[in-house]
Design a protein around this nucleic acid. Structure first.
Lengths: 117, 117
DNA sequence: GTAACGTACAACCACATGGTTGTAAATAGC
DNA sequence: GCTATTTACAACCATGTGGTTGTACGTTAC
């Protein structure tokens, strides 16, 4: 599990987060478990693939910190982790800020350029 | 190339965007080309891998709409696409909103519950 | 014109990924 | 206690991914 909630993320952690989000089934699992927790077998019932396949998808999401799993009797209850979503948002924000800064530099360049002649 | 800039994204398009972001070299290419455009060979010079490997990474990013390429003489100039970043941000926002709505429902439930006895 | 540069693309390889089936173990229900 | 349910996990398979090298082609510079 990922412990860092405020610190920088390693490349591997970022890889896992985006990799986990790069599959429609996994995104749907995130969506469902953010809306309300669900057992692995409840999730498996929602998709036309084997239980084991869904189990693997949940494991990938858990490895990325996008969901957490806790035991309840013989079930494992899966819950979406909004913190991981926010971490990903901050990453994308950083990229947009790089672009915004570039535009800012261009604007400053234009402003600072005195009229020619 | 992706034409949809305001419309809904298909699952495949979303897959490609997150897949493209799930690699540290590709994220670095996005970072560099958002800060300022660069030719493929300039990019290739920045990494300890073959030109062809970097070329493939650029192709993956282009397929996801995260960068665009335009010819300039014998070079191909790569430029980061801030719109694609914003599309990804909107996707993550939607997931966070699902969670926010769930918490809102829980709060409303608590507020609406009359004191017992 | 020729040589160097920048790119494109195919072929190949090792390994990861997304799916399957099968087996085993823990828990719940009767 | 027995049976059904739920999960875990291994083994396997087809395909995708990230890297390589090699070859070909357009463009630039001299």
């Amino acid at each position: 599990m990922v412990v860092n909630s405020s610190a920088e993320l390693t490349d591997d952690e970022v890889d896992r987060i985006f990799r986990a989000l790069a599959d429609a089934t996994r995104r749907d699992i995130v969506r469902r478990t953010l809306a309300g927790e669900a057992s692995v077998s409840e999730l498996a019932g929602a998709y036309s693939m084997s239980f084991a396949a869904v189990q693997k998808h949940v494991a990938v999401l858990e490895g990325a910190g996008l969901v957490t799993k806790r035991p309840r009797g013989r079930e494992r209850v899966v819950r979406g982790n909004p913190d991981a979503i926010r971490r990903a948002q901050r990453l994308l924000d950083a990229y947009e800020q790089i672009w915004v800064a570039r535009i800012g530099r261009l604007d400053a360049l234009l402003d600072d350029t005195p009229p020619q002649q």
